[in-house]
Design a protein around this nucleic acid. Structure first.
Lengths: 180, 180
DNA sequence: CAACTCATGTAACCAGTTACATGATTCA
DNA sequence: TGAATCATGTAACTGGTTACATGAGTTG
């Protein structure tokens, strides 16, 4: 369901094709909710069938441009206003799950992994900051303000994860490993 | 696949029943990888069939105690040592996705939602810290060290999210909404 | 003995992934 | 004209969710 509503929200900014929407996920939204292109195309079909979006134009190379309908906008707003108890707030993040079991490897090996992971998340944070920097600097555009905010939060979270990996690595180096 | 390996990792600490494992997810691991009890039971059956765990004892009320086998431990270690490119590092976190579209509501409404969410994540962070505080204070037990570390990282992330929600709320209050 | 928590399951369904397929346009 | 990117899809599968079911022990 999340994707459906996210697609509606993106189309609220401007009419777009499935390809455009895919790019929007690649260029940052996907760090928080990964999506594959084929899923987008199938959802778009469904949304059109439900009258939440309309295929309003064709672009170059067979691009199909969809526009948000009134009921589509209403549906997206309903999603944003969902009752607090029915909001899905759980985080699914395998790396932290993994980290919980790193004690099964000996300290040097776990340390090496943590170092590598720290580097990865540092990169992610930098990349996200860069994406934010590329946004048009229009303080009056509410959509841009929101995008910038979410991008920066993502960058902050990834930055923290990088720091935490590094800190944990140090801790492990001061204690004996239990591994093979 | 993640659950399978997480179950193996938990059983590496001590033999446990499906119920115990379910509790372990409720008491913190689930903040990072949510699981339902029925999924745990089905995976346990599968793991036993694959020889990665053994049903070694029965406890009170029909509890079935599973123990990790040698190949089970090896499988879990393989998972931890996975090649960097094949690691799933994406974060799936609907609240941030939602936040990206909050500009579709007017500023007061979006602000109210952000306030509510900030409170929720503050609670989450506090709850996680509390879980960590309840852990036995055994610095020599590598598993406990890892659990504490992951718990604290989770708390930190949720705390950051809470702060970010609050900050964004302020920003929105200084700008006009675009909503209905 | 009724209500509650403990404890384990099964079946149907759906969201999301993997793998495959194909035509349009641009560029070297 | 061959390779690369643009752009859209379909089919099969699988991980995860929802809903339902049930018996064992504990507490008031």
């Amino acid at each position: 369901m999340s994707i459906r509503n996210a697609l509606l929200g993106l189309l609220a900014e401007a009419p777009m094709s499935g390809y455009d929407l895919t790019k929007r996920f690649e260029h940052s939204l996907g760090r928080v909710w990964p999506v594959r292109h084929n899923q987008i195309y199938t959802e778009l079909k469904q949304l059109a069938a439900d009258g939440l979006i309309d295929l309003t134009a064709y672009g170059p190379r067979g691009r199909k441009i969809y526009s948000l309908t009134e009921s589509g906008l209403a549906a997206c707003r309903d999603w944003l206003r969902a009752r607090p108890e029915s909001i899905e707030r759980s985080m699914r993040f395998e790396p932290l799950l993994r980290m919980n079991f790193l004690w099964l490897l000996d300290a040097p090996e776990a340390g090496a992994i943590l170092k590598r992971e720290a580097a990865h998340y540092r990169d992610q944070a930098a990349w996200l900051k860069d994406q934010v920097a590329k946004l048009p600097d229009d303080g009056a555009d509410a959509a841009i303000v929101a995008r910038r905010a979410v991008g920066l939060i993502g960058a902050r979270l990834y930055g923290d994860i990088a720091e935490s990996c590094q800190a944990l690595e140090k801790t492990l180096n001061d204690a004996p490993g239990a591994g093979s």
